[in-house]
């Protein structure tokens, strides 16, 4: 009898507990693996924690809508220039389909939302990019909406806050998209002439044409922890120089160390720090 227990059975009868399995699957479905520390975080926890990993503080991407909720006073945001949408200027193959898909995925018209808002009671102009829309690449519409937001700031004499995230210029619009770099940079100059405050908040990732135009021209540059910010993408650099890149290369901590940004702020601290900065700039350049 005892001997029998030591005999290796080839097959075990398994009676699956369907209920338990289903709960397990459901639990798996509603968790996300953190790219920072590989731990599984439940989506509820993530949502409560402003989509920041509670273990390693990895900042997950958030939508423009979530970003606005996070930094603007509740209910203060009023969007303007809502009707702008992209057209296929160059007859670039497949561009319309790409735009349609991006629209379905994000239910946004384009990669940036702009409007009036208040932060800590201060009226501001707020522009937020959304990387779900074609990696928030900058084409005619993004360039135009940034310029118009700047013009609204000048008209209303309000500070402007732009939250960036972008893969760069939108290749499907060719030179027209490249020229948006010059166009937005020229607009920021008008803002400087008017003596108005511009704060940019760099979020993951901000590269190429956006990093080398309006994003890096702010009076005060804030970045979220771990955000990748740079001109050339790491893959291109690796290919060109044929070497491994240093750890944390082009991350916000690296940029702070090299003197390229002013402050790194965790997501939960941004609103308070913005309020503080707006308080300090009350009255603009006349103050």
């Amino acid at each position: 009898m005892i001997k029998n227990t030591f005999i290796r059975k080839k097959y075990f009868p398994i009676t699956p507990n369907i209920d338990q399995l289903q709960t397990q699957i459901r639990a798996n479905l509603s968790t996300t693996t953190c790219p920072g520390c590989s731990s599984r975080v439940s989506d509820d926890t993530l949502a409560e924690n402003l989509r920041v990993c509670p273990k390693c503080k990895h900042h997950f991407s958030i939508s423009a809508g979530q970003r606005i909720e996070l930094i603007a006073d509740s209910g203060s945001f009023k969007e303007f220039n809502t009707g702008l949408s992209s057209i296929n200027i160059l007859d670039f193959p497949g561009y319309e389909e790409k735009l349609e898909k991006a629209n379905e995925k994000s239910s946004l018209q384009e990669a940036i939302i702009t409007g009036y808002a208040s932060i800590g009671g201060h009226s501001i102009i707020l522009a937020v990019m959304d990387s779900r829309f074609m990696m928030a690449s900058m084409g005619s519409v993004v360039g135009e909406k940034v310029c118009r937001a700047v013009e609204h700031a000048i008209e209303t004499r309000c500070p402007i806050v732009i939250c960036t995230s972008s893969g760069g210029a939108r290749m499907q619009e060719g030179m027209i998209s490249l020229m948006q770099m010059a166009k937005t940079s020229a607009a920021i100059n008008k803002l400087n002439e008017a003596g108005l405050l511009y704060i940019s908040i760099l979020t993951h990732p901000t590269t190429g044409g956006v990093s080398a135009s309006f994003a890096s021209l702010a009076d005060i540059i804030i970045a979220e922890p771990g955000a990748l910010v740079g001109f050339a993408g790491p893959r291109v650099i690796k290919q060109t120089i044929g070497q491994q890149l240093p750890e944390k290369f082009q991350h916000s901590e690296f940029l702070l160390e090299h003197g390229m940004i002013d402050i790194i702020l965790e997501r939960s601290q941004i609103r308070d720090k913005l309020t503080c900065l707006l308080n300090l700039h009350k009255g603009g350049n006349n103050g």
Partner: peptide, 23 residues
């Protein structure tokens, strides 16, 4: 596209010239 170029702010140096040239 090099490590040193990024360390010393390639994006920042380009945007500055764009703004200067425009005005």
């Amino acid at each position: 596209p090099g490590i040193g170029a990024e360390e010393r702010g390639q994006a920042w140096s380009i945007s500055k010239v764009l703004m200067t040239m425009a005005s």
